[in-house]
Amino acid sequence: MQSVSTLERILRGTAISLVIFFFMFPIFWIFLMSFQTNETILRVPPSMVFEPTLTNYRSLISGTLEGSTATLEIRFMSNLYNSLFLSVTSVTVGLLLGVPAAYAFAKLKFRGSEDIAFTLLSFRFAPPLLVLLPLTIYFQKIGLADTYLGLIWVYQLIVLPLILWIVRGYFEDIPSDIEYAHRIAGHGFWSTFTKIALPLAGPGIAAAGLLAFIFAWNNFIFALVLASADKQPVTVGALAFITASGINYGQIAAGIMLSIAPTFALALYAQRYLVEGLSLGAVKG
């Protein structure tokens, strides 16, 4: 039996290394790219040996892109701010709306609750473009196009179903008896929701919030269509690096590094919550 488990260990180790290499190498490569100039990036054959430079980061932060022929103004830092503002606000709104709704779907089995919950999830099935085209027209008519409010509203399409379905699973996991016990002890419905249901679903709410934040942050298409330059998040802003005079790979790489940094840090910090929250959501949803 001992020999089998040794072989098993080697195989498992190899498999894990392969997977890590496959997924992590691009990030690692971009990390390297962000410290190189376009010339060293584009040399053939590529090499890991180069003289690191901070010019890419410097130009992103100062907002001027020194091309080979001209100097270009870029708004990377304001894009970063937009990303942060849009994501945080959308998730906050999503949690305020989604958590009570999730509780209702989990605990108060009303007529049609299952259908409504499913409809909300089905927003995720349609390609975003399908929703976007009519929305663009509506938004222009009612003056929501190119406003933060309009964007936050549209972002609910991403955030709300996610929060709803993950948090609902957590609420369903709370034994009804615990809530009954609180009611019978003399506390009202609202008190039971805030003192029992919310704390017990805490990890799930945190996981859903984090995940929604990551999804909102990474969104590209909604902002591309609905927002003009001054409201664009980094995902869209990165397009600016594709200029008439060529593609600035170094700045793109540095931009990517800066834009994934918050989500990356967040994901690492909350890894355990995320996996728990997701697997539960997957089983329950």
């Binding site: 034994p175 008896d177 615990i178 009954y180 016990a181 002890a185 029992i196």
Partner: peptide
């Protein structure tokens, strides 16, 4: 007042 079979403690 009620005591539950599975205790149902908070």
């Amino acid at each position: 007042g009620m005591a539950f079979q599975n205790f149902a403690l908070f």
